[in-house]
Design a protein around this nucleic acid. Structure first.
Length: 282
DNA sequence: AGGTCGACCTGGCAGC
DNA sequence: TGCTGCCAGGTCGACC
C-alpha cells in the first residue's frame, strides 16, 4: 500500500481539491470496505457533510467533516478515516463506476460536481467514520509521526532498546513509528548503512542516530518525488509516483549496489521481503 | 509480554 | 494457450 510518502501526496492533493465541498451523496458497491459498519449507517453518517480539512496520520488519510443541519447545537465534527492498506486508491474526477473502471468500491459525489472514487483490487482497505480518534483502534495506538517536530530521538532510542526484534521489523511497527512500510524500511536501512537483521536492542547510539537521520532523508525525498509506484499505487489524478527509479535497494535483488557494485541480497523477515547490501550494511 | 505466522483478497507474471 | 505456484506498498488475531 501507500506508505507515508504516498499517503502524504494524496493528502496534499486532496486538500487542494476537496476542502470546502460538501459530500452530497455516497454509493457503496462493496460493503467489506466498511468493516463492521452497515452501508445504511455509513451513508447517513457521511451524507451532507462539509469537508473542512484533510489530514494524514501514519498511512491513513483522514477527511475532517462537519455534519450540516444535524444537531441544534451546531455542526458536529467527524472524521472519515481511510486506510488504503495494500491496493486502495483514491481517484478524483468522474464517477468511475459509470466508466466501468475495475475495483470501484465506493463513490462520493461532491457538491462541485466531481467525484471521489475509492478503488481497491484486494479489498484490504477500510473506510471508517469516527467522532474521536480514540474510537479508531488503528489511530489510537499509532506511534509518533516521523516528520513532525515532536519526533524525538530519545523516545525512539527507548523503544529500540526495549525490543529484541530485527531493526527492519521494528521500523515497520506502526506503534513505534507511524507510516514506514516495507519499501521505505529497506531504503532507510540502506541509507543508514545498517544491516536489517541486526536486533534493535543491539544498536549503538550512533547507529540509532543514523537510522533517525535516514528516516527524515528518505521519507522527505520520496514525498518530493510523489511516492513510489511499484504496481498499483496512483495519486488522486491517476498518475504514478516518481520515486521508483530512485530506489536504491528495494526490488533490486541481484542488481549491483549503487555504492559498491556487489549484488543486492534479498531475505525474508516476518513474512516480508527485505533488500539490502551485505557489503555496505553491517 | 513480545515475537512470529497465517488469514484476509485479487491479479499479474514466470515457468512448464 | 492454459495451468500452477509465487509474489505483492498492510494489519490483525491466534498462538507459542
Amino acid at each position: 500500500m501507500p506508505e507515508l510518502p504516498e499517503a502524504e501526496t494524496i493528502k496534499r492533493d486532496l486538500a487542494k481539491e476537496i476542502i470546502g465541498q460538501t459530500l452530497k451523496g455516497v454509493t457503496v458497491y462493496d460493503a467489506r470496505i466498511l468493516g463492521n459498519n452497515s452501508v445504511k449507517n455509513f451513508v447517513s453518517q457521511i451524507t451532507n457533510c462539509r469537508i473542512v480539512n484533510v489530514l494524514r496520520r501514519g498511512k491513513a488519510i483522514i477527511i475532517e467533516c462537519k455534519k450540516t443541519g444535524g444537531s441544534q447545537r451546531g455542526p458536529q465534527t467527524q472524521w472519515l478515516v481511510i486506510q488504503l492498506r495494500m491496493t486502495g486508491l483514491l481517484l478524483y474526477g468522474e464517477d468511475l463506476k459509470k466508466r466501468n473502471v475495475r475495483d470501484v468500491k465506493v463513490v462520493f459525489e461532491l457538491s462541485g460536481g466531481r467525484h471521489l472514487n475509492y478503488c481497491d483490487q484486494r479489498v484490504f482497505g477500510r473506510l471508517y467514520v469516527v467522532r474521536d480518534f480514540n474510537d479508531n483502534p488503528y489511530l489510537k495506538t499509532l506511534g509518533p509521526e516521523p516528520l513532525n517536530g515532536s519526533f524525538e530521538i530519545k523516545r525512539i532510542s527507548e523503544q529500540f532498546h526495549r525490543r529484541t526484534i530485527p531493526v527492519k521489523t521494528l521500523l515497520m511497527d506502526q506503534h513505534v513509528i507511524a507510516g514506514i512500510g516495507n519499501i521505505y524500511a529497506s531504503e532507510i536501512l540502506f541509507s543508514a548503512r545498517l544491516n536489517p537483521q541486526k536486533r534493535s536492542n543491539q544498536l549503538t547510539r550512533k547507529e540509532i542516530q543514523s537510522v533517525y537521520n535516514a528516516i527524515h532523508t528518505v521519507l522527505n525525498e520520496a514525498i518530493v518525488h510523489r511516492g513510489t509506484s511499484i504496481r498499483n499505487y496512483r495519486d488522486i489524478y491517476g498518475h504514478k509516483g516518481n520515486f521508483l527509479i530512485r530506489l536504491k535497494v528495494y526490488g533490486r535483488q541481484d542488481q549491483p549496489c549503487p555504492e559498491c557494485r556487489s549484488p543486492i541480497k534479498r531475505l525474508f523477515q516476518s513474512g516480508r521481503s527485505t533488500f539490502f547490501c551485505e557489503e555496505c550494511q553491517k
